[in-house]
Simulated assay, not measured.
Amino acid sequence: MTWIVEPFSLDFVQRALVGGALVAVLCGVVGTWVVVRGMAFLGEALAHGMLPGVALATVLGFPVVLGATVSAIAMSLGIGALQRRGGLSYDTSIGMLFVAMLALGIIVISHSGSFATDATAILFGDILAISAPDLVGLALATAAGLVLAAAARRPLVALAIDPRTAAVLGLAPRAAQA
């Protein structure tokens, strides 16, 4: 039976387990606020909406995490802008940018002759490919997410219940909305 474990060193499996646990904690905290606010489609849309940033970073030789971060921030700001200024619902704003960002990512991939990475690998990843530096980054992101969620708890709760009441209470719902 030892031949089954040989292709995957326990180091890979242990890092995958720790990485998965860190992501589960962070997604559990963030996901709660996303679902309470009625934006459950956001997670799927952000996952696919990061494709153009990841593709551009890969083509230009930048860190993939940087490209994904820039793309996710741009998409989040775009969703907020469409919802506030365009008078669209969150689902409509998310859906529009989800499709637009995914299409932009496919265009970048298809027009770059030097793109050697499979788009499926970018979209879905490989949990066994988590490295020790990735774990450090995930731990920092999880800690930052927990601290931010704890610090912004009151405005987030008020915003989830009623944004007008949150504004009257002086809890800065616009800051929590971004």
Rank of each mutant, 00 (worst) to 15 (best):
I4F: 11
F8G: 03
L10T: 03
V13A: 13
R15H: 15
R15E: 09
L17R: 05
V18T: 12
G20Q: 08
A21P: 05
A21V: 11
V23Q: 01
V25I: 15
T32N: 15
V34K: 13
R37M: 03
R37A: 05
L42S: 02
G43R: 06
P52K: 15
A55T: 14
V59I: 12
L60T: 13
F62D: 12
P63R: 15
A68L: 09
T69G: 15
A74I: 10
M75W: 06
S76L: 14
S76K: 09
G86T: 03
G87R: 09
S89W: 15
Y90P: 05
I94N: 03
M96W: 00
L97H: 02
L97T: 01
A100I: 12
A103N: 00
I107H: 02
I109V: 12
I109G: 01
S114P: 00
I122P: 00
I122M: 01
L123K: 02
F124V: 09
G125V: 05
I127P: 01
A129N: 07
P133Y: 03
D134Y: 06
G137A: 10
L138A: 06
A141E: 05
T142E: 01
A143I: 12
V147K: 10
A150R: 07
A151Q: 14
A152Q: 09
R153D: 06
R154S: 11
R154N: 12
P155F: 06
P155R: 08
L156S: 05
A158V: 02
A160N: 00
I161G: 11
D162F: 04
P163G: 13
R164S: 03
T165D: 08
T165P: 04
T165I: 07
V168Q: 07
G170T: 09
A178N: 03
